[in-house]
Amino acid sequence: MKAGSNLEKVLTSGHFAITGELGPPRGANADVVRKKAEFLRDKVDSINITDNQTSVVRMSSIAVSRIVIEMGLEPNAQMTCRDRNRIAIQSDLLGASALGIKNVLCLSGDHNKFGDHPQCKNVFDLDSMQLIMTLKHMRDEGKVLGGQELDGVPKFFIGAAANPFGDPFDFRVTRLAKKVEAGVDFVQTQCIYNMDKFRTFMKQAVDQGLTEKFHMLAGITPLKSLGMARYMAKFVPGLEVPDYYLKRLQGVEKKKQADEGIKIAVEQIQEMKETPGVAGVHLMAIEWEHRSPEIIEAAGLLPRPKLD
C-alpha cells in the first residue's frame, strides 16, 4: 500500500471502483458540505473535492476534505497548479497529509479567465505532470523538491486527470503514458459521452501496457437536460456529446429528460464495466449529489466493499 486509502484498497483488491464528486460551497457554511457529502455515504469509495473549480472562489478543497473525513468518509483532494507555487503546493500537501487526506488529484486547473476573478495573477509554477512528480518525490524520497528531508512523510495515493477527447487526439495516450511515468497511481477522466472514441483511447492504453501500471476511472456526468447537453457539446472545450444522446433527450418530454439522462449514465457505467482497462468510474454529478445514489444503485454497484 502506498497510502492505504480506501480507494487504493478497493482498486488494488480488484473491485470495480466508484468515486463521487463534491463541489465546495461559495461561503463558509460547513453544513452545506455535510449535507452534500451525506448523499454519498456508503455509495462511493472516495469523494473528489474540487479545488476552486472553473476558477471560482470556493471553500478550500483541503478544508472541505477534512470536514468529509470527520464525517467518516474519504476525500480525494483536488489540487491545481493555477493558484499556488511550489512552496504553497508542498506546504498544503504536508498539511493535507497531517489532516488525514490520503488521495490527491493533480490538475493543471481551469484558466482563471473563466472564473469570478479574471483579473488575478495566475501561477503555473509547475504543470500537472510536474505536480505528480512533486507528490511522488515527497512520498517516495521523503524530501521536498529543494532536497531537504521531511520530518513526517506524506503518504498519498496519487491521482491525475486525463481528457481522452482533448486535441490532438493522437497525443492523448502519450500524455497519459507520461503521467504514468511521472508516478500516477490512478487517473480519472473528463466526462465521457463519445464511447467509441473512448474505447479507441483505452485500447491504445491497454496495448501499450499502461493500464497495468495505474488504475483508470472513467468519468461520467449525467446529463440533466437537453439544454445542458447542448451547452456542453457547444461550449465546453475538449468535450464531445454525440448526436445520438442529444436525440435521445430530445425524444422525451422536458420533465422526463433528467430521468433519461440518468438512464444514459447508468448504461454508460455498465458499458464501462465491460471496457478493458477500466478499473472504475468517477461520477461527477455536481450540484446533483442527491441523485448520485440512484445512479449508483441502478448501475449495480451497491453495496460498496468494506475493506480493512
Binding site: D127, M129, Q130, R175
Partner: peptide
C-alpha cells in the same frame, strides 16, 4: 504547460 496540451485544447 511544459508537458503537452491540457484537456481544453
Amino acid at each position: 504547460l511544459m508537458n503537452g496540451p491540457c484537456g481544453g485544447s
